[in-house]
Design a protein around this nucleic acid. Sequence first.
DNA 1: TTGAAAGCGCTAACAT
DNA 2: ATGTTAGCGCTTTCAA
Lengths: 341, 341
Amino acid sequence: MARKSATGRIGIADVALKAGVSHATVSRVMNGNFTVDPEIAARVREAAVELKYQPNPVGRSLALGKTDTIGIVVPDLANPTFQAILRGLSRAAAEDGYRVLIADSFEVPSEEAILAGEARRRCDGLVLCAPRMTDAELEEIAPSLHPLVLINRTTAAAGVPSLVVDYGQGVQDLAEHLAGLGHTRLAFLAGPAGSASNRLRLEGLEAFRNRHPQVEVSMLDGGSDFDTGHEAVDAVLDSGATGILAFNDLVAMGLMSGLHERGVSVPGDISITGFDDIPFARYTTPTLTTAAVPISELGGQAWHQLRALIRKEDLETADTRYQPRLEIRASSGPSPADLAP
Amino acid sequence: MARKSATGRIGIADVALKAGVSHATVSRVMNGNFTVDPEIAARVREAAVELKYQPNPVGRSLALGKTDTIGIVVPDLANPTFQAILRGLSRAAAEDGYRVLIADSFEVPSEEAILAGEARRRCDGLVLCAPRMTDAELEEIAPSLHPLVLINRTTAAAGVPSLVVDYGQGVQDLAEHLAGLGHTRLAFLAGPAGSASNRLRLEGLEAFRNRHPQVEVSMLDGGSDFDTGHEAVDAVLDSGATGILAFNDLVAMGLMSGLHERGVSVPGDISITGFDDIPFARYTTPTLTTAAVPISELGGQAWHQLRALIRKEDLETADTRYQPRLEIRASSGPSPADLAP
DNA sequence: TTGAAAGCGCTAACAT
DNA sequence: ATGTTAGCGCTTTCAA
């Protein structure tokens, strides 16, 4: 009978018994150790196949001190940006035989540290995606999370590579684009308060203001999803701005939908820009002007950085900076003030 | 010094040493066993905190025979449907202290069985999402994957609960809706060939045809993403149909975008329906008529079924069938033939 | 080339 | 109430 082990599953001992060898030999064969006599190896393999034996990964993990698994902590799995990062990460890691364990903090900053620690202990490394926790907290826990890679966040802690998108530059490019179209009253529909990428956008806008003192840039509270944009219609109309920089594509889409309901023409009356260039952006009506971010590439890069750390190839912990690319489509046009004198 | 164990990390032995007790006692304290003297327990806890000790999950898993992790295999992580299922699953599992390990088969059916087996071995249970493998193969591997829950697929194998969306009924409801608006020439923009959910839609349309012999329903080849819809514009126009049933919302959006570029009015000239009711559906222009599927609820339910199996509460392995809900929005309207006599 | 034995970090039965 | 001991399933020295 096959079921010898306590768990009821077939273990290395069953194969050893069937092949008439020790478990050490079975282990050697399973791991491709060539010091085993070919004849015996064949017998072992045969027994393994017959019993449909597959090594227990938990046992291996304990013995080897590695799990072939990495973790990722995201603030919100419903956000297309994080979904794309996850996909890129999962794809790249899979090519090296690693699996991904996910942890969603549901935008609760206080949960992040716990989730991160827990995930890290089960894995060989961790990707922390746009964490909402404070700099101090991040810096404090970073060492215990090593190997660790950050996305859209940096830290003073040593040995933690960061992949950050230059949202500041991106938003400046968008603002320049609108200014170039004659818009002199812009409004920024901000993102979540704790978001570091929102801070970068604000810094970028500050730089823009300094270069263009004649352009008014008002700030409107917001968020990161459709509803935020949809609910911001009144605030946007009240602001009197003709060029709206939405926090991201989702917000822009919600806003466009709301303006459409009010009979406001885009870009006839108001020009709108998004951020991210999610796949949907080229299918909205009108198609959305935005700043394209190579999101899923970011996930792939995160794995490559993490892999280097896991393999202790950490020769270079240089941070990587991604430049968004301006994607001009139909949602932005000349300022109506320019058209109707 | 704290670092005693071979791995360099702090282990139970370090805490035992520091608190002057055996590791068994430390284990008892960490697991809330009340047979420990309160004073000693406090001393142990203190030592644990000072050393920042956290039990190694791999060690626990091996000893307990459980990992507090479940796996999910999806055909394509880029698909919003699977993303939503993943999110619902992850959320529900997290509430019970379980984590989710993901495996993406990238639409390669031959990979599924391997990925599934591998994932299952690392986890306490598995969710197989719309597997593309054959019925025979699924039935063969199902027993070795137990506890197993299927989504949008059924199997003859015993003890495997299925959660399936009634795509057949949904597409019939949509077709009835269009017929009720006076459309007599419909076209179905089909999905991926191997997809079981596409087969269900085709069956539903067959039933519809039998009930409405006077309505013409032509079949157009397609796929499951934006581009499919966008590229289908010519085929759609050539078909002469005034009511288009797109495979899903993505295809519908791509199609609407393409028709918009051609100056075709929706729903003035052509009515369009999607399927799924992804969040974007209510923000398209015009808003999309579709059949709403409670996708992320599906993920939650999958966890509840799986949890019952893990806990061996498998009293009822009844399959669950979800009825899509017709969501009538602005992309469908009266047949132009009815309007212009 | 192979087997015996130790050990990965933990839990739990057993003994005290 | 606590310590000792024996696993969980595997890899890997160390002997032979």
